[in-house]
Nucleic acid binder design. Structure first.
Lengths: 251, 251
DNA sequence: CAGTGGTCTAGACCACATT
DNA sequence: ATGTGGTCTAGACCACTGT
């Protein structure tokens, strides 16, 4: 029989949404951390007092959002940042022949900065708020093609040091996760074209004013806080940004 | 009881995938046309000899792909092209303040052309194959900001006339659907930056070489044929391309 | 082998839209 | 009142993984 009394969070929400919400709470509160296995479906059914079908529908949505990952026969795991996940879900630049390659990342600088009006609006902080600023140069096929200009609200990254950023052997999102407990759940990107500024032109070795693809990415946490604002400037005479379903590949 | 004998298409496929495949066949073969209502779930269960849960899982996937649309209490319908659907699923340009607006489309030309090497490769036709070429100028907020350069394999659009294209009061995808029976199911887009060519600069009233966002879109049919190749050139000093989940909006 | 997720069933009740 | 899709259940069996 279906249970009569629902949690007070329920406001006409389907039961599976309630369950999903409770799972998200457990994730947000750190009951299960990235890489952890979560309890078996049977266990979770008992815990929430729902049937398998309902539990599965909740987990279905979380896997579709790349928050959980199921492995038949092994269990269900909390998604964790890795190089592969970065390439799969966050890095959208391909060579024009369709190949995809992990970029060589060259650290240029870590500085302290303050939010200007635009950065503050995009980050959801006050103008003048303290930020870290990371600049990286990325190479593909042995050629420098991308400058990343990354802004991080200081509050989320206490005492971040240049050594941490320079000497890491992981993606930045792994660093955020492992060293600061910041889980980047999803990103949104806005794209424009711009001419290379003097600084960017110098770092990429191209003439000032060269048309570049300008990607403005916001990275969001579990709580929908903006934890990173990244401006990427891409030379696109040999590469392209692919916008399509993750599932349907780059054919 | 679960049926023992499966169709010969089944090669270890889950039953709901078989059902999905059969639904796709009926759509492809025109048993149900865009805008039509399809039989009720109960009917389809009988027809395919499966339970509701299985049927629903098949339909779930088709709705997630925007091929079918469910309306509680009314029925399930075949997705049909409309202005709203175009804005929702295919047009990704927003004003920088986040507003979205339907562009004013100004017809410039319809000509016959032949596929060059690049176009042939992208369209999946032979070099030199006959094409129609449409050029449109799009305005947002009263300002010309986009040039669309559209290539169509002649085979899919027999006897297309300038009047059809010029005088339509619908989106092009509605025209393809209503006048040629071509259903655009999905698109994929590649983005680059380029400098405005002399032609584009003249049509947009900007200096030659101005950095533009260059969107290369392929539109695919039910059969995964490329039915349209569209080059869009966008002025992005007041607008941007938004790449994010359709569901999560442009906040 | 035991435990996990993946699929499928048969039927119930609910919410919504139309007649 | 009827018919539609939306949710939920309780239990079965399959496929895969690790011991």
């Amino acid at each position: 029989m279906q249970q009569i009394f629902r949690s007070d969070v329920a406001l006409g929400l389907p039961l599976y949404r309630e369950v999903k919400h409770k799972l998200m709470e457990s994730l947000r509160d750190g009951e299960w951390k990235p890489g952890d296995i979560i309890p078996a479906e049977k266990r979770l059914c008992e815990r929430f007092g729902v049937s398998v079908g309902t539990l599965r529908k909740a987990v279905d949505e979380l896997t579709a959002e790349n928050i959980l990952i199921r492995h038949q026969g092994r269990g269900t795991f909390v998604a964790s940042h890795s190089q592969d996940r970065y390439m799969f879900g966050f890095f959208h630049i391909y060579a024009q022949d369709g190949r995809k390659e992990y970029p060589k990342v060259e650290f240029i600088s870590l500085t302290r900065d303050k939010a200007d009006a635009d950065g503050a609006a995009r980050l959801g902080v006050k103008k003048g708020a303290k930020l870290f600023r990371i600049i990286n140069r990325l190479s593909l096929g042995g050629r420098a093609v991308i400058i990343d200009d990354i802004l991080l609200p200081e509050q989320f990254f206490p005492n971040m040091t240049e050594a941490q950023v320079r000497d890491r052997r992981t993606t930045l999102y792994q660093l955020y996760q492992d060293s600061f407990g910041i889980g980047v759940l999803r990103t949104e990107e806005r794209l424009q074209a711009c001419g290379a500024s003097a600084d960017i032109a110098r770092m990429l070795g191209i003439p000032e004013g060269t048309p570049l693809l300008h990607i403005i990415r916001r990275a969001l946490s579990f709580r929908d806080e903006v934890v990173e604002l990244r401006h990427s400037y891409v030379i696109t005479d040999g590469h392209e940004y692919y916008a399509g379903d993750d599932n349907q590949g780059h054919g």
